[in-house]
C-alpha cells in the first residue's frame, strides 16, 4: 500500500472542507449578515454625526468582525466531530498539525474572507475616510487569520465538551485583547496621520509565530480533548 503524499493529503483535506462550506452557502452569509446588523445599530445608538462615527469606525468594524468570527468559530470542528472524520484525521499517518492547519485555512476562507469583502462596506457606512481603508484591510488581513488560529486551539480544547459558546468567548477574550489593540491601533494611527507600520509589523510577527505554533498547539489540544 502506498501512502498518499503529504501535498495530496493537504489538498484533499482543503478541498473537502471547501466543498462542504460551499454546500452550505447560507452559513457563510450568516456572519456577514450579523456584522452588517451590528454595524447598522451603532449609528442608531450613538447618533448620526459624521465626526463621531468617523472616530469610532475602525474600532467598531474590527470588533464586529471579531464577534462575527467568534459566532462561526464554534462550528469549526463540530460536524467533523459528529461524523467521526476528525478521529480519522487524528489516526491518519500524516502529521495532524498540518491537516488541522488546512482545516483552519478552509475555515478562514469560509468565514473571514467574506467578512473582509464586506468590511469596506461596513466602514463606509460609518464614514471611515477612504485613505484609511487600505490600512483597515491590511489590519484585517493580518488579524483575522490570527484570530482563526488562536480560536482553533480553543475550539480544539472544547472538542470533548457539551457545547457552550459562552465558554469559548470567555476563553478567547484574553487572547484577542492584544490583537484588537494592535489592529485598531494601526487604523487609529493612520486616521490621525501617524505612522501605522509598527502595530502592523507587530501583528505580522504575531501571525508568523501563530502560523507555526497554533497548528501544533491545536493538534496537542485535540489529542487531550478527544482521548477519554
Amino acid at each position: 500500500m502506498s501512502q498518499p503524499s503529504l501535498a495530496s493529503a493537504c489538498t484533499a483535506v482543503l478541498r473537502r472542507d471547501l466543498t462542504l462550506a460551499w454546500r452550505r452557502r447560507g452559513d457563510i452569509a450568516m456572519p456577514v449578515l450579523y456584522a452588517l446588523i451590528v454595524t447598522t445599530l451603532f449609528p442608531f445608538a450613538l447618533g448620526p454625526e459624521d465626526a463621531l462615527l468617523q472616530r469610532i469606525a475602525g474600532g467598531v468594524v474590527l470588533v464586529t468582525v471579531l464577534l462575527a468570527m467568534l459566532l462561526a468559530l464554534d462550528a469549526m470542528f463540530r460536524s467533523d466531530i459528529e461524523d467521526g472524520s476528525l478521529e480519522q484525521l487524528v489516526l491518519a499517518p500524516q502529521p495532524l498539525a498540518l491537516m488541522l492547519g488546512m482545516k483552519i485555512l478552509a475555515h478562514w476562507l469560509g468565514t473571514a474572507l467574506p467578512l473582509m469583502v464586506a468590511a469596506p462596506l461596513l466602514a463606509g457606512m460609518l464614514h471611515l475616510p477612504t485613505a484609511v481603508m487600505p490600512v483597515l484591510l491590511l489590519a484585517l488581513l493580518l488579524a483575522t487569520p490570527l484570530l482563526s488560529l488562536l480560536g482553533a486551539v480553543l475550539v480544539a480544547l472544547t472538542a470533548g465538551t457539551r457545547r457552550s459558546g459562552m465558554l469559548l468567548a470567555l476563553m478567547l477574550l484574553p487572547l484577542c485583547v492584544p490583537v484588537v489593540i494592535f489592529a485598531a491601533g494601526a487604523v487609529a494611527a493612520a486616521q490621525q496621520g501617524l505612522p501605522w507600520l509598527a502595530p502592523i509589523a507587530w501583528l505580522g510577527a504575531a501571525l508568523a509565530l501563530a502560523l507555526v505554533l497554533a497548528p501544533l498547539a491545536c493538534a496537542a489540544a485535540l489529542r487531550i480533548a478527544l482521548d477519554a
Partner: peptide, 9 residues
C-alpha cells in the same frame, strides 16, 4: 476560563 473549561468536561 480555566475554571469553566475544567467544569465543562
Amino acid at each position: 476560563g480555566v475554571i469553566g473549561l475544567y467544569h465543562s468536561f
